[in-house]
Design a protein around this nucleic acid. Structure first.
Length: 255
DNA sequence: ATGTCACATGTTATGTGA
């Protein structure tokens, strides 16, 4: 079973790229982020035609998350994190073939310090609270999404350019580590301990041709599913296509 | 400080967010 996470950066603008990748990579489950689409504008017909069922949680202009399942209908279990109602569409969760899968679009948090960074840290706290409850249920869970955190120095190319950026701040990294330390397995890093495995390359400053990337998209596995981890990777070449998102899909194969 | 992309508002650009 192949599960992927892909920040598509506008699902309608990037629809030809998405459909090409679905046909070529044939993932069984896909967590999409940054739909930048209202619920009504989500391209469900094209996605169904490609052989996928879907659940989605959209919003005008910004954010938006979805979960696709090949030859299956994901069973929606929640949109938004528990607690106060989220105005921004950043969380969706569904059950597919006995696995609970999320699509997370964690706030970027820039500029920092400031209210947007506070929102990021608060959102992380609410995610940890919910993730902790999922762990206690002892069910197979994959927390997939764009966490907007490069967890360590190894997850970014050598540079000073991002020193003030919310993506690499100690507080952002501590929040990610606190989540993982609940008992989750960072699947990509587990399979590839000594390769950077970038998933994002900024459009600016020639960063894709220079491979000046960051690893921001993660698949975290609950203890009951981690032993099934067989393979993991990043479909880097997707980033080089015409009209590409600034992220590439990250994926795992479970036995 | 800048670079790139895309969208919204509503203009022959500018602001916003990433």
């Amino acid at each position: 079973m192949k599960i992927a996470t892909f920040n598509i950066n506008n699902v309608n603008r990037r629809l030809p790229n998405l459909l090409r990748w679905l046909r070529a990579a044939k993932p069984d489950v896909v967590a999409l982020q940054e739909l930048k689409s209202t619920d009504a504008e989500f391209p469900i017909l094209a996605i169904e035609k490609a052989g996928y069922g879907a659940v989605w949680h959209g919003q005008k202009t910004w954010n938006g998350v979805a979960i696709l399942a090949r030859n299956a209908e994901p069973v929606l279990t929640r949109t938004g994190l528990p607690g106060e109602g989220d105005v921004e569409a950043r969380y969706i969760e569904a059950a597919i073939n006995g696995i609970l899968v999320t699509s997370i679009y964690l706030p970027n948090g820039n500029p920092q310090p400031g209210p947007k960074f506070d929102y990021k840290l608060d959102w992380f706290k609410r995610l940890r609270s919910h993730a902790g409850k999922l762990l206690k249920q002892d069910i197979p869970v994959v927390l997939a999404g764009d966490y907007n955190v490069a967890p360590t120095e190894f997850d970014i190319y050598p540079t000073k350019s991002w020193d003030k950026d919310a993506l690499i701040q100690p507080k952002s990294r501590a929040a990610f580590k606190a989540l993982v330390d609940q008992g989750w397995t960072d699947a990509i890093r587990t399979i590839h301990p000594s390769k950077p495995m970038f998933t994002f390359w900024d459009y600016k400053r020639n960063r894709w041709p220079r491979d000046a990337g960051l690893r921001l998209d993660h698949l975290l596995l609950s203890p009951s599913i981690a032993p099934r981890l067989l393979k993991a990777g990043v479909d880097r070449k997707i980033r080089g296509e015409e009209g590409a998102s600034d992220h590439a899909p990250a994926w795992i194969v479970l036995r």
